[in-house]
């Protein structure tokens, strides 16, 4: 073996030297400015016409706590309905059957095309259209008794959510490689089984971030149900300030609760994402 040729002179050995720390003057300056602005805002609020004692008194009031529980119950149930409808409609939309396709597209068009608050009002006032509802010969009831604020809010929020979720689910299914569908067919799977066993589990990984977004939107959208007397947190806060006129204080109470709930949801979403990321990390196990 030939010896390696001698290295050229004039290129000193730097391996012992460390890289100096950068001063980052601009970062320090901008951070100081932002702290100043925040302090000014805090001072303004502290001296403004807000009785903070009311905020701390009502933040754990029974009516407010019941309200936030109702908010969460409605958000979870309506989102569940929305995801169920979304999956069904997305599958219909991707089916080769033109009837199913058209029905799915029509559903999305109708419920995405009208304001949510209008849909809530329509559900709640269904009794004006159909005084009695039921299955002819089997069961019937007065619509006012059936269409409670709870049911009207659930239907309004859930069915509206389904229209949006169907597009999220459809995008997720389209993101799965066509070869996956062919491989599923090649081992004898039918369309629905391939969707359930192979395509949807892979689509979930893609759709969880947008679904998390949608769920956070849903938590806040439940506040619209206050117009149909559903006792969620904003509705209950309003009822209190109608009595004691502490409008801003109670709006702050409701706002803090929304912020808290949304803050808890973010780490939950990360847990879910990890669950569906199975097999995607090369060295994870």
């Amino acid at each position: 073996m030939k010896p390696a040729p001698a290295l050229a002179e004039g290129f000193p050995d730097l391996s012992g030297m460390r890289i100096a720390r950068e001063p980052h003057w601009f970062r320090w300056l901008s951070a100081a400015l932002i702290v100043l602005v925040l302090a000014a805002i805090a001072r303004a609020f502290a001296n403004g016409q807000i009785e903070w004692s009311y905020v701390s008194r009502f933040i754990t009031a029974k009516v407010i706590l019941e309200g936030i529980v109702n908010t969460m119950v409605m958000a979870v149930l309506a989102m569940a309905l929305g995801i169920f409808l979304g999956i069904v409609v997305a599958i219909m939309r991707l089916s080769p059957n033109p009837v199913l396709k058209t029905v799915a597209a029509g559903y999305t068009w109708l419920f995405r095309g009208t304001p949510l608050i209008l849909q809530l009002l329509l559900w709640f006032n269904l009794a004006l259209v159909f005084p009695t509802i039921g299955i002819p010969g089997l069961w019937s009831a007065r619509a006012v008794d059936v269409m409670t604020p709870f049911l009207a809010a659930l239907l309004g929020l859930g069915i509206n959510q389904g229209a949006y979720t169907s597009e999220v689910m459809r995008a997720g299914m389209l993101s799965v490689d066509i070869g996956q569908y062919e491989a599923a067919q090649a081992i004898g799977m039918g369309r629905l089984r391939a969707l359930r066993r192979i395509i949807l589990p892979q689509a979930m990984r893609v759709v969880i971030p947008p679904l998390g977004n949608e769920f956070i939107g849903m938590v806040k959208a439940t506040s619209l149900a206050s117009v149909i007397q559903y006792p969620e947190v904003l509705h209950n806060a309003e009822n209190i300030y109608y009595a004691n006129s502490r409008v801003i204080e109670l709006l702050i109470v409701a706002g803090l609760w929304y912020l808290l709930v949304v803050s808890i949801l973010t780490p939950l979403q990360m847990l879910l994402e990890r669950r569906f990321a199975r097999g995607t990390l090369r060295f994870a196990r």
Partner: peptide
């Protein structure tokens, strides 16, 4: 029939 694909198409999950 059993089919083997160019790009494997194993189920990644």
């Amino acid at each position: 029939t059993g089919m083997v694909f160019q790009r494997f198409n194993l189920f990644p999950h």
